[in-house]
């Protein structure tokens, strides 16, 4: 039995559709960077192995810096753009219950997904992360990449199911199979 207390409703069910904050988005982004990098490494390893298998010569993409950088860039662009275009959430965002939506709250388009990815790279490498301060100080909690693409990030996790799980795991004073006082005679 877990000892995690049931969180207050305003912390779970009441937040669905609300703008997500900096901490949640940072953790989700970190998960995405890890996932994208992990998949890239796996892909490169498979490519090296395949080339060696086919040609008989050993091959390492890392020996070709330019091509490796290009492949990585294309891969990162594809990783974020495709997932945002299809479902509005990347692997990291799905894990931590976030979703990208339009400024009004509807699903985003492929164009917005691509713009957001480009905006993300711009904010990260050109502004050195300063563009992300908008998540804390902007009225709609939108960073520079959101402003470029016309998007926002909201909480999307099934908090109601989570709350039911917490309640289900809570210890009860009378478990099933036990009976209250006065019922033993009736059941005998």
């Amino acid at each position: 039995m877990t000892t995690v207390p049931v969180p207050a409703p305003e912390m779970t069910v009441g937040r669905q559709g609300h703008y997500a904050g900096a901490a949640s988005r940072l953790v989700a982004f970190a998960a995405d960077v890890g996932a994208a990098w992990g998949l890239y490494t796996l892909g490169v390893a498979l490519l090296n192995a395949a080339v060696k298998l086919i040609t008989g010569h050993s091959f390492a993409l890392s020996n070709h810096q330019g091509i490796a950088f290009l492949v990585l860039t294309v891969w990162e662009f594809f990783y974020f753009t495709y997932q945002w275009a299809v479902s509005g959430k990347t692997l990291g965002m799905a894990l931590f219950g976030l979703q990208v939506v339009t400024r009004r709250g509807g699903p985003i388009s492929g164009r917005q997904a691509a713009l957001r990815t480009i905006g993300l790279a711009f904010t990260l490498f050109i502004t050195l992360g300063i563009g992300f301060l908008g998540i804390v100080f902007q009225r709609e909690r939108r960073g520079l990449n959101d402003l470029i693409a016309g998007t926002a990030v909201v909480y999307d996790w099934d908090a109601r199911a989570a709350r039911l799980r917490w309640i289900a795991r809570k210890e009860r004073p009378l478990h099933r199979g036990q009976h209250g006082p006065g019922t033993e005679a009736k059941r005998a």
């Binding site: 995690v4 912390m11 904050g21 901490a23 949640s24 931590f96 804390v136």
Partner: peptide, 20 residues
């Protein structure tokens, strides 16, 4: 795993509020 995820998400919400 689900329990851990639920905890992280709810704690994340709290931290978001604090930072904001």
């Amino acid at each position: 795993a689900t329990e851990i995820l639920d905890v992280i998400r709810s704690q994340g919400v709290g931290l978001d509020d604090f930072i904001l």
